[in-house]
Computed example of a mutant assay.
Amino acid sequence: MASARDPVSPPVALAIAGSDAGGGAGIQADLKAMTAHGVFGTSVATATTAQNTRGVRDVHAVPPAHIASQCDAVFDDFDVGAVKTGMLATAETVETVTGLLAAVDAPVVVDPVMVAASGDRLLSPEAEAAYDGLIEAATLVTPNADEAAVLVDGPVETPADAERAGRELVAAGADAALVKGGHIGDGETVTDTLVVESEGGGDGGSDGSGSATALRFENPRVATDATHGSGCALSSAIAARLARGEPLREAVAAAVDGMGPAIRRGYDVGEGPGAVNPTAFDGGA
Rank of each mutant, 00 (worst) to 15 (best):
V39K: 05
V196L: 10
A160K: 08
I238D: 03
E199K: 02
E128S: 06
D79F: 14
V195C: 03
P10H: 05
T142S: 11
A162F: 14
A174K: 03
V110A: 03
G185I: 02
A262D: 15
A29S: 12
G202W: 00
G166T: 01
E168G: 02
I135N: 02
A149N: 00
P220V: 08
T93A: 15
A61D: 12
V104S: 13
V170G: 02
K180D: 11
A148D: 00
G208I: 04
P11I: 05
L31T: 03
G245A: 06
V59S: 07
N52L: 13
G201V: 05
A4P: 07
G200C: 01
T90V: 12
D192E: 10
V269Y: 11
V276N: 15
A130G: 01
S211A: 01
G81Y: 07
A237W: 12
V252L: 09
D20L: 14
A91V: 13
G274H: 11
N277M: 11
G272K: 15
L178C: 09
E197F: 00
S230N: 12
G266M: 03
D20I: 13
I184R: 04
R164N: 04
L178A: 04
V62Y: 09
V222G: 02
G229N: 07
A255D: 11
E95S: 14
A162P: 09
R57P: 02
R54M: 14
V156G: 03
I16W: 01
K32T: 07
R121K: 13
T213D: 15
D132S: 14
E147D: 03
V109I: 10
A223W: 00
A15C: 04
A29Y: 05
T224H: 01
A212L: 02
A25I: 10
I27H: 02
L140P: 04
F281D: 08
V113Q: 01
G205Q: 02
Q70C: 07
A130I: 08
G86N: 06
D175F: 04
A65S: 06
V94Q: 05
G173T: 05
G119M: 09
C71G: 12
G166D: 01
A253H: 06
G274T: 12
S198H: 07
D20T: 14
V222I: 12
V56F: 10
P220Q: 10
Q51Y: 14
D77N: 14
A226I: 09
S209H: 01
